[in-house]
């Protein structure tokens, strides 16, 4: 088999074009196989939950499921609200005012997932009477803010809205 050296540039161009076209086509073909793992249309359609909060007595926490995760809805007492509001922000690992975390002071809505490694904290426990995570000892206050332990962030607040005085829609 002899090797030809004629027209090296045209030959190289053809090889480069073929290689590039193959790479682009392969990339395009792979995308659907990655995208299929994203939430499907039926999952996206279920992304809001409505909750009647009229029946939750003061001081109680109700847990509802939203997108497969627990959401804590806490009807806070006067004392709890005061505790949450009268904290010096400089004392907090993740400084955030209580007013920035609630829409109405009596109602705290947070995602019930410890920001450390995803366990569900227990309510009305820990030194700040907020939540205590049994997995690794993170302690949250009555505003769901991290006070002690390994968790890096406050409990997340989901998107929610008051439809009426006694009804909220999460998501």
């Amino acid at each position: 088999m002899a090797t030809s050296t004629a027209e090296p540039t045209r030959r190289d161009m053809l090889y480069i074009a073929t290689g590039a076209a193959t790479a682009v086509a392969t990339g395009a073909a792979i995308w659907p196989f990655i995208a299929q793992m994203n939430p499907d249309a039926s999952t996206l359609a279920l992304s809001s939950t409505e909750l009647d909060i009229g029946a939750i007595p003061e001081g109680q926490i109700v847990t509802v499921k939203w997108r497969g995760k627990p959401v804590f809805v806490r009807h806070r007492t006067k004392k709890e609200i005061e505790e949450a509001e009268n904290v010096q922000l400089s004392q907090l690992p993740d400084p955030q005012a209580d007013s920035a975390r609630v829409k109405k002071p009596e109602w705290l809505v947070v995602i019930g997932i410890c920001t450390h490694l995803g366990c569900i904290p227990l309510g009305h426990q820990g030194a700040y009477d907020g939540w205590f995570c049994p997995c690794h000892g993170s302690v949250y206050d009555t505003s769901g803010r991290i006070r002690q332990g390994p968790a890096p962030r406050n409990l997340d607040v989901p998107d929610y809205a008051f439809l009426t005085d006694t009804k909220i829609k999460i998501g």
């Binding site: 053809l14 090889y15 074009a17 073929t18 076209a21 193959t22 086509a25």
Partner: peptide
């Protein structure tokens, strides 16, 4: 296009 390029190559 790919088939054409492959064939030329």
């Amino acid at each position: 296009i790919l088939a054409g390029l492959f064939y030329a190559t």
